[in-house]
Amino acid sequence: MTQNYSPLLSLENVTMKFGGLTAVNDVCLKVFPHDLVAVIGPNGAGKTTLFNTITGIYTPTTGRVKFSDHDLKNTKSSDITALGIARTFQNIRLFKNLTVLDNIKLAKHTRIHYGFWSGIMRTKRFKAEEKKIEAECIELLKLFGLETKKDFYAKNLAYGQQRKLEMARALATEPKLLLLDEPAAGMNPTETKELTELIHLIRDKFNIAIILIEHDMKLVMEIAEKIFVLDYGNLIAEGSAKEIQSNKRVIEAYLGAEVNL
């Protein structure tokens, strides 16, 4: 793949240290618009930490995260969302006691154009805007097959539906880049297959770039155009599915190296 346009997201020598532990070590990677890439690696390789540095939950110890033309250093997590990065969480973080529809509406927070008093006085503008948002949210729920559940509490959804709702909620923030943290965790093969199609559909329909962390190698190999492999915080390989499968260092990271006794 040759790309002569500028990257959407670029990590420049990002290192994240927690005391003596280096969770992410000197990682450089670039993601371009409309890319669908995967980050894989054994448990504890620093994948989620990498996501957390991108979304501003952690500030990298050294190095830079750049999104389009913005340096994300000292940018609040909430402002990063406004710039156009959305994510899901490995351990689902829905607003459990709110309805499915309210969960999605909340994600529209940065896209709402009425003032505080407009909401309190329930002006025409407020009503029009809320109506528009609700329509958009329902449209999104339809895509995920959740529109019949819109008045359910998020906590009452089945596990697979909760995962979907989290994705729908991330999309509702109108991102340019979507980070999915283990979207297939705990799903059965049928659900995983459905998810594969859904991820493709999302990428094309919303025209966004997607980075996913995943342990389900079948899913990764099937959909990722490019794979980054992390091991103990180091980026040990990057390339297409084929290249990664035959990469010696990757095999070593997962299965261990041969030792001559």
């Binding site: 969480f89 973080r93 927070h109 940065t110």
Partner: peptide
């Protein structure tokens, strides 16, 4: 009215899950 407006929703989301709320742009 606050509860039913975007600002109210944002405040309520903080009660539900701070990290997720911040991630929604609150």
């Amino acid at each position: 009215n606050l509860k039913r407006s975007a600002f109210g929703r944002a405040i309520i989301s903080i009660r539900e899950d701070e990290i997720a709320a911040e991630n929604m742009g609150v």
